[in-house]
Design a protein around this nucleic acid. Sequence first.
DNA 1: GTTAGGCGGTACCGATCGGTAACATCGGGT
DNA 2: ACCCGATGTTACCGATCGGTACCGCCTAAC
Lengths: 206, 206
Amino acid sequence: MNKTIVRNGRNPEALDALAPPPRERILAVACDLFYRNGIHAVGVEAIAEAARTNKMTLYRHFKSKDDLVVEYARKLAAAGDAVWLKLAADHPDNPEKRLAAWVDHVEEIVTSNAERGCALANAAVELQPGHPARAVIEAYKHRKRDHLVKLFRAARYRDPEPLADEVFLLFEGARISIQCGSRGPASRLVAMLRDLLAKAPRKARG
Amino acid sequence: MNKTIVRNGRNPEALDALAPPPRERILAVACDLFYRNGIHAVGVEAIAEAARTNKMTLYRHFKSKDDLVVEYARKLAAAGDAVWLKLAADHPDNPEKRLAAWVDHVEEIVTSNAERGCALANAAVELQPGHPARAVIEAYKHRKRDHLVKLFRAARYRDPEPLADEVFLLFEGARISIQCGSRGPASRLVAMLRDLLAKAPRKARG
DNA sequence: GTTAGGCGGTACCGATCGGTAACATCGGGT
DNA sequence: ACCCGATGTTACCGATCGGTACCGCCTAAC
């Protein structure tokens, strides 16, 4: 009867000893359900249940469902920002490799199965213009576009801003198109990007 | 007391003598509300009320809300197809003018205020993958891409399919980006398109 | 004039929604 | 041994959802 150390009361001899605290579980489950089924289609009770807890505990950590949605958007935005941090960390002095790594990352996203598009864009579609999560989403999209500009500037492209806008629109278009059944155009995205980046004019070295 | 001819019983002396029958009013109002507020955010009662009728009459013309949503998607798809028909009718023998007119049309859409993006793409985001309206949406998006291919082929572009895919993604990306707050990249869409179409290689005449 | 059908109005149904109250229980820290 | 904070459980609230039954009215056709 050696009762191993567990994080929460129930289920003493199960193997969820490494289960995160409720708040993290709730948020993780909410991310999954919101993304797969849409925000409006998922009730708080279903989230609590899937997180192996209950509605009360959910409301002890989040003031309201809208608050949970805001945290959802924040977590997604943070995950997106982390990609750029990792990109910079992995190739600190080589913009060329950073660029190639980013294209590989895009390829991963766009060729992965069960793709339901950009979760933040989907959320923006579902949420009313005044919803507090919209500000999080819009700020993230702006940062993303700026990251592209900086990446292209570092790679010595002559006109990084128009190039970033074009790449941005292609990427966003691919992700929204996938869930509209247009996998055809989206499947060509990576080839387009490689071609575009190869042909765009760059400054001379030095 | 000359009772003028009216289309429906009530309100004999008002000026809505030219009011369409209830089904058309309901569908038109549903299009407006679904687009502006999202499908899940609009109840059938609100639709009936805005159409100056009631829920019963709505359910006499539509089996369910899902059925109304399908008709909503069908109407949007028909409106989109009508644009291509008009394009072909306006410039039957001049692919160049047809192309220019299409770009102008894109410019109108993308610069109009209160743009909430592509209504069909938004609907696809909100609807579960099995929803019957999804088939309508996906079929329309395929037609749209094919229309682009045909347009570019008629304009004698050397590789109409990759070009159509690229233009398709740029357009879709712009519309989804507008409602994510990224008006910057989207505002450059038309310039991108004109540049892209000017530089893409074409076949020689004859 | 009569009839039939489309329409408006109201009241209602069961289900589910987001959100809360009250209480039992368990754990770790002192 | 004690207590306190975090969690689990249950029941409940008002509001709203999609959808329906019933009745009365008006119009159009015959």
